[in-house]
C-alpha cells in the first residue's frame, strides 16, 4: 500500500485557501459567545467554551496581519490541538474536508522573506487551486509579540508560483 492520502480541512482567509491536517483538528464550530480576555494579545479574540474546555480563540486574520472582518454565517472556529494546547482558530470559512495525495504536495517555495517556510508545511495545487498547508504548531509557537505578515508572504508565494508556471521568456 502506498502512502495514504492525508485528509485535510480546507479553510479560507482573505480568498486564500489553507489546509490543516484533519488529525490536528479536534472539531469545528460556528463562532458564538466569545468572551474577551483583558490584557491578552490583540489577535486573541477571547475565550470560548469548547466541550467544557476553556480555550483561546485566535483571529487568524489579525494574526496574519490582515484587516478584521465581521463574523458571518460562514465564519468558523477550527479547534486545533498542538501538543498539550487546544486553541480555536477563527477563519473566514471552512467547508471542505479533502484528502490530498502526497504527490500533489510540494515544499513551500523559497521566498525573499523566508517567512513562508516557517509556517507553511507545503503547498498543493489541486484542480488549479492553490492550497497552502499550514503548520499549526509553528503558527502557535511563534511568540505572541512577533508579528506574522502573512499577507505579504502569500503574495510572495503566489508570485513564486506564477514565475514557475510562466517562466520568463
Amino acid at each position: 500500500m502506498t502512502e495514504r492520502q492525508a485528509p485535510f480541512i480546507l479553510f479560507q482567509i482573505a480568498d486564500t485557501t489553507y489546509a490543516v491536517h484533519s488529525e490536528a483538528v479536534q472539531q469545528m464550530e460556528m463562532v458564538e459567545h466569545i468572551t474577551p480576555v483583558p490584557n491578552a494579545p490583540p489577535f486573541v479574540e477571547g475565550v470560548v467554551l469548547s466541550r467544557g474546555q476553556v480555550i483561546p480563540a485566535i483571529n487568524l486574520r489579525t494574526r496574519f496581519g490582515l484587516e478584521k472582518k465581521p463574523y458571518d454565517l460562514r465564519t468558523r472556529l477550527i479547534v486545533v490541538r498542538s501538543g498539550e494546547r487546544t486553541v480555536g482558530l477563527i477563519v473566514d470559512s471552512a467547508r471542505e474536508f479533502l484528502a490530498i495525495p502526497p504527490e500533489a504536495i510540494q515544499p513551500p517555495p523559497d521566498t525573499a522573506s523566508g517567512m513562508s517556510e516557517r509556517y507553511l508545511e507545503g503547498i498543493a495545487i489541486l484542480d488549479k487551486r492553490l492550497i497552502l498547508i499550514l503548520n499549526v504548531d509553528a503558527v502557535l509557537s511563534i511568540a505572541p509579540s512577533e508579528e506574522l505578515h502573512l499577507a505579504e508572504a502569500i503574495a510572495e508565494v503566489k508570485d513564486a508560483l506564477l514565475a514557475e508556471e510562466n517562466p520568463p521568456a
Partner: peptide, 21 residues
C-alpha cells in the same frame, strides 16, 4: 491552561448555563 489567555488576576473561567464563558 493556554498561555495565550493566562492573564494575571484571572484564575479561570466558568459558565452560567448560557454557553458564554
Amino acid at each position: 491552561s493556554d498561555p495565550l489567555i493566562q492573564v494575571p488576576g484571572i484564575a479561570g473561567a466558568t459558565e452560567l448555563g448560557d454557553g458564554r464563558p
